[in-house]
C-alpha cells in the first residue's frame, strides 16, 4: 500500500487533482463561471459537437425519405438517383424552412423591442446527467454572450445563460428549480416569480407561488416576464396557467404554468445580449 502512495502514477494523480482544484477556484473568481480547462475543452471540441448535433438533426430528417428511396430503388437505378437528389434538396428545404420560421418569429420580437440585441445560437449538446433539461448553445463570449443573458425562442422565454466559454455557453431552462423569473399574469396583473420544483419539472411545468386564495387567475391565463430585477426584459411570454392549487404550507395559492416552449425539442435559440433596463449593460445605465 505504501508503495502505491509513492508511485509516479499517484503523484501525477495528486498533481492533476490540484490543477483541477485551482481551475475550479479560478472559475469561482471569474465572471464567466467557467473553469479554464473546461473553456479550453469547449473551444477544442465545440466544433465537433456542433457538427455532430447538425448530423443528428439531419439524420432524423433524412431517415423517413431514405426508406422511400430504398423501396423505389428496386424499380430502377435512375429513379433511385433522382429520389436521392430530391431527398437532399428536400432536407435542405426543410432545414431552410425551419430557419426561416425561426427568423420570422424573431423579426416580430425585434420590431416590438427595438432595444434588443440578439445572437442566434444552435443547441449543440445536452448533458445526459442534467435532469433539468439544460443545454449547451453554440455561441460564447466572443459573440458577446455573458452570464445571465436571457434565452428566448420567438416571444417565449426559454431560460438563462449560466456559464460562458469563448465559443459556447451553458443554458439553464425554466424547468430548472434554481431559475427564478419575476412575472405577472396579463389580465389580473397579479405578480410574483415563476420557478419550479423537481416534481413539476419532470412533468414539464413551472409554478407561480404566493397568490391570494381568492386569486382571479384562471386556467388559460398568460404569464409574462415583468422585467423587475433587470435580468429578463419585460413582456416575454413564460407560458399559460394550467391550474390553480392551494399551497399546503401556508394560506396562499399557486398557479401551475405550462411553459410556451418545450426546451427538450429546441434546435435553435436566440440569446438577448442587450436590452433596455438590463442590469450592468450600457442600455440599462441610461434608465
Amino acid at each position: 500500500m505504501f508503495r502505491f502512495f509513492k508511485s509516479i502514477g499517484f503523484k501525477i494523480f495528486l498533481g492533476l487533482t490540484a490543477a483541477l482544484l485551482a481551475g475550479a477556484v479560478t472559475a469561482a473568481l471569474l465572471n464567466n463561471n467557467s473553469a479554464p480547462q473546461t473553456s479550453a475543452a469547449g473551444l477544442i471540441f465545440g466544433p465537433l459537437q456542433r457538427f455532430s448535433s447538425y448530423m443528428a438533426d439531419g439524420l432524423s430528417d433524412f431517415s423517413v425519405y431514405f426508406k422511400s428511396s430504398a423501396v423505389l430503388s428496386e424499380e430502377n437505378e435512375e429513379l433511385k438517383k433522382e429520389i436521392a437528389r430530391l431527398t437532399d434538396e428536400l432536407v435542405d428545404y426543410e432545414q431552410s424552412k425551419n430557419k426561416l420560421t425561426l427568423y420570422e418569429k424573431f423579426l416580430d420580437v425585434k420590431e416590438e423591442n427595438p432595444s434588443f440585441k440578439f445572437a442566434a445560437a444552435p443547441v449543440i449538446a445536452r448533458d445526459p446527467g442534467d435532469k433539468f433539461f439544460g443545454f449547451t448553445a453554440g455561441r460564447g463570449s466572443i459573440h458577446g454572450i455573458s452570464v445571465d443573458d436571457p434565452v428566448i425562442y420567438g416571444k417565449y422565454l426559454v431560460g438563462v445563460v449560466t456559464s460562458v466559454m469563448p465559443t459556447q455557453c451553458k443554458v439553464s431552462t425554466l424547468l430548472n428549480p434554481a431559475v427564478n423569473v419575476s412575472a405577472f399574469e396579463i389580465s389580473t396583473r397579479e405578480s410574483g416569480f415563476v420557478t419550479t420544483t423537481p416534481e413539476l419539472s419532470e412533468k414539464g411545468l413551472c409554478r407561480l407561488p404566493g397568490l391570494e386564495r381568492t386569486t382571479a387567475i384562471v386556467p388559460g391565463s398568460v404569464v409574462v416576464t415583468s422585467g423587475i430585477g433587470g435580468i429578463y426584459p419585460r413582456n416575454l411570454i413564460i407560458g399559460t396557467v394550467d391550474e390553480i392549487a392551494n399551497d399546503i404550507t401556508d394560506i396562499s395559492s399557486f398557479a401551475v404554468i405550462k411553459p410556451g416552449v418545450d426546451p427538450t425539442q429546441l434546435q435553435d435559440v436566440f440569446i438577448i445580449t442587450s436590452f433596455e433596463g438590463q442590469v450592468g449593460s450600457d442600455e440599462g445605465q441610461g434608465q
Binding site: L20, G23, A24, Q37, F45, D127, T136, T162, Q168, K170
Partner: peptide, 17 residues
Amino acid sequence: GLIWDAFSAAPHGYYAF
C-alpha cells in the same frame, strides 16, 4: 471528463476529477 464538463451543467472540473 474534460469533454463531458465542457457540455454539462456540473460544477467546474467535476466529471474530469
